[in-house]
Amino acid sequence: MSTEITIEKLNKFYGKKQALKDIDLTINQGMFGLLGRNGAGKTTLMKVLATLLQKNNGNVTVCGVPITEAAAIRRMTGYLPQEFSMYANMTVYEAMDYLGVLSGLTKAQRKDEISKLLMKVNLQKNMRTKVKALSGGMKRRLGIAQAILHDPKVLIVDEPTAGLDPEERVRFRNLLSEIAQDRIVILSTHIVGDIEATCENIAVLDEGEIIYQGTVSDLVEAARGKIYSAEISKLELARVKEQYPVTGMISMGNLVNVRLVADKLPFDTALPCEANVEDAYMYLMYGKRGVQ
C-alpha cells in the first residue's frame, strides 16, 4: 500500500480568488514542512487534505485513496487545527474518550490508547483536569494526542506552535518528530524555526503557489554566498532596509549589526556569512517575489 500523499494540479477557488494554483506535491513518510506567510494558502491546502474543503480540480490521493473518499480519508487522517479546543467542562480523559467514540474506537481500544497517548504527551497527571484549566501548551499537546488517537497514517498539524513559550515549543517539536517516525506528518507554519528543527523535506507556498519544494539543506545551499552581515550606523538603517531584505538586527549603541540578503556584496564594509534556514527563506521570497 502506498505511503505517500500525491497532489497533482490542485486548484482551489474562493469565488474569483484562487487560493491554490496548480499545486503539484509529493509527500512521503516522516515530517514534511509547509512554510509560507499568513494567507499563502497553507491552511486551505491542509483543509483539502483533511477533507474539510473541496478541491475545485486536480488529483489528490492519500496513501493511494482519492481525497473524494472522505470517510476512508478521515479514518487514516488525524487533524489538529490551528485553534484546538474541546468542551471546557470536560476533563482531559473525557475529551479524549468522546473524540475516540467519534473516531469509531471501541471502549477497550479507547481505554488502552488514551492512557498511552496521555503519557506520550506528558498529560498523564492531568487526566482529571478540566480542559478549561489547561495551559496553551497543554491544550496543544492534548490536540496532538486526540489527532493520533485512532493511529492515523497521516497527521496534519496547522500552525501548532503559535503562541507557545520557547520551552513548550521545543517540547512540541520533539513530540512531532517522535510521532513522525512511522507516519506522514505535515506541519504547516510560518515560523521558520519550527521547520528548521523538525523537517527534512519542505515546500514553500506563496500566494497559492508552490515556490519551493525540496530539502531544507538544498534551500540553505541556494542562499549560500547571498547572506551578508555588516555594522552600520543607526542613521543608515532605514536606507539599508529599503534596499535589502534584512533578516536580523542587533543594536550596539549607535551602531547596528545587520544581517541581510543580497546577490552581491552590498557595500564595502559588509562581510559574507553562513546562511541559515531563515536567511534562505528570505532569499527565496526575495528572489521569487522581490518581497522584503
Partner: peptide, 10 residues
C-alpha cells in the same frame, strides 16, 4: 471544535 469533529470518521 467543529473542525476537530468534522475530521473524525464517524
Amino acid at each position: 471544535i467543529s473542525e476537530v469533529f468534522y475530521s473524525r470518521s464517524i
